[in-house]
Design a protein around this nucleic acid. Sequence first.
DNA 1: GTGAATGTTAACATTGTGTTTCCTTTCGCG
DNA 2: CGCGAAAGGAAACACAATGTTAACATTCAC
Lengths: 226, 226
Amino acid sequence: MERNVPSIMLVDDEADILEFLAYNLRKEGFSVHCARNGEEAVALAATFRPDLIILDVMMPGNDGYETCRRIRSLPDMGRTVIAFLSARGEDLSQIEGFEAGADDYIRKPVRPRVFISRVRALLRRNPSGREEPARLVYGDLEIDRERYIVIRNGIETDLSRKEFELLVLLASKPGKVFTRDEIFTGVWGNDVVVGERTIDVHIRKIREKTGTGSIRTIKGVGYCFS
Amino acid sequence: MERNVPSIMLVDDEADILEFLAYNLRKEGFSVHCARNGEEAVALAATFRPDLIILDVMMPGNDGYETCRRIRSLPDMGRTVIAFLSARGEDLSQIEGFEAGADDYIRKPVRPRVFISRVRALLRRNPSGREEPARLVYGDLEIDRERYIVIRNGIETDLSRKEFELLVLLASKPGKVFTRDEIFTGVWGNDVVVGERTIDVHIRKIREKTGTGSIRTIKGVGYCFS
DNA sequence: GTGAATGTTAACATTGTGTTTCCTTTCGCG
DNA sequence: CGCGAAAGGAAACACAATGTTAACATTCAC
């Protein structure tokens, strides 16, 4: 019933940062596991095989690079994206990070919005296919997730961010009926504070731009892309 | 043979909130137990092993975190999902909650619709596997719960919401005779009062759309899917 | 700061579901 | 076989859910 939510593992010895990041990710609907040190991280990674691992470079004992290598050497870990968290001034360490098998670097201090969009971008890199590819093509409709545009019969149309995220959510499972609640958590995150009617307005705008036939209403239930 | 209804335990010292939540959950057909404090909560949890526990953070004496830890340390409690209730502004405490073994937090004030859908989502997380598959196939009839359609001999048919919910209920146990009362509580919930004849009308529409043979009438008792 | 683009709310129009009503048909039982 | 209760069926109604528009609020780039 629920969308296959991407899972993320956070590894940091500082509880504050862990909490902060986990809170922001969960709010966006991601599944989050936390580890306090390298040992825990390797064990958790082996168990949950997260789609994305965010790893602090500086940790007591077994440091980030070592942990990264050990995780990379686990079986079936090729599809997992690993990103390092590093404080300012540790620039030199970047090279060692990439050598250890990291895919990206995230600089502290972390700002929530930037962080979340970075995470999404990283998940898109994940070849496991849990997150859709950059371009989705359905009949005469093409959705380009990188450029935030929709191409219908060769005509490009801009969508706003919310419009686009909503469309992408629906299009991620054509035919599936998304309830209003699923749409809220999928697009707005877990603690929703917008009115019930907001979705309708966005749906209308999407229909206006992509053609009426693209989204079907199932009264009393929700909407569905077809 | 009754349907295996998910059980939920509510823990809060404020009677108002307890009643409000219990009322809304029972209306949706859940089995609800309430506790006023940590002691009661631990005892009840041990006895009933609910599928989901919703725990207020702020309680006199033994607070929510401590209660959560004690519940988590009970035997066979691994499959239980625990969620915290917290008021706005307690942001930091949410994180302590996760450390204490919580799976999610719910912000006050609680809005019934959002709350219910959140509860359903949490129950779905429960690995006990009670969740039902998206597609049910019976002979030449296929019910696609994800797409809200019925396929008979390859022909897709739309059902309205009530029609669909009723059909899904009957089809969840083929051969079982559902009494009218069971149908009412299963589809309409516990406190909705509608006329006796309403069910008949929906049954008629379902038969119209899915073929006469799908639902059998047991006069004086109820209906049965076959 | 300022203005444009986006997001949200509010108000009204419209649609279709859900329910009721009323009448007909079927079934169970003596 | 006839009677009454229960269910089938068709239509009408009420109302909740959604469509639509415009005003208002917010965000973001410049």
